[in-house]
Amino acid sequence: MAAPRLTRRAFLRLMLLAGIGGGLAIAERQTRPVGLRTFLQWTLRGWRRRVEPPAVVALGASLSYDENLLRDALAELWAQADMPDVSGRRVLVKPNLIEWIEGRPLVTAPEVVGAVVDLLRSRGAEVVIGEGPGFRRDAGPVVAQSGLGAVLARRNVPFVDLNYDDPRPVPPRDGWFPGRSRLWLPRHVVEADLIVSVAKLKTHHWAGVTLSLKNLFGVVPGICYGWPKNMLHVNGITPSILGLKQTLPPVVSVIDGIIGMEGDGPLFGTPVPHGVLLVGRDPLAVDITGARLMGFEPEEIEHLSLGMWAGIGQGIRIETRGASMEALRRRYQPPPK
């Protein structure tokens, strides 16, 4: 019996199939360790953001830490930013309490945290404050020394040291923790209906800036991952920031830039009296706006540019409300390399 003859058409088909197969193999290799499927999901989601409605970020200007001024300003910004209804919801307020060094504006001002608590409670939320400092084995002294302890005591609101809060296994979502089948996260984080990341506007020597997304590192429990949380660095700072955002319950943002920090952040930078407060329900949009206020474009900050590309939030179409963005722009001194 004669061997089947390879026609020209069959040959071209074979070549086409080989080309597609080879292309897929190269793409799979190029997209390791996340894989082609996840890579395509991120890419398509990023494209989709171009046609989705803009994210709203509300900007307050000329602010101080005066309690009454803050209360009124925050209520107005909350309304301008179309923030979610919190009535009857369990809300975890996550300030930045990384460490306490006298004279350095490295933590979220307690007055801002107090104003957020008052606002959430006035709208019927059940509020808990939680933080797991990366550079303190015991959050208690940071809470006391920063003045937050007194603010919380006056309001009789509980503080949870997330480093020790009963850790629960959670599957990481969206492919940012490749090779990990679970993340241990504190009970109060896992059980929250909403997380309000109440961050500080400051520079960061590894991440460029630390705003409401980077602030999420503090929810990772020290008893599981150590002090500081080395697993997040092993996984990569950028994928860990984005992966936490995608794995946690919904996160909204408030950023305290009333006194920001420039230079050698997150610990040893210098104060910048800036007078701004940012509020928004999309942390990526809020952080991009915050970075721009500091004089950085999102393309200069790896986790912001990758977050825009992968569409982890609306980073392309941002509508600012309230104070004028241009009038508030500064040029923060970047962190050392």
């Binding site: 084995r137 991952y225 150590g226 002090w227 080395n230 697993m231 092993v234």
Partner: peptide
């Protein structure tokens, strides 16, 4: 010793 195997060493562990 690291906090978790395969990571960097830290003082307390």
């Amino acid at each position: 010793w690291p906090w978790r195997p395969g990571e960097a060493s830290w003082v307390e562990p």
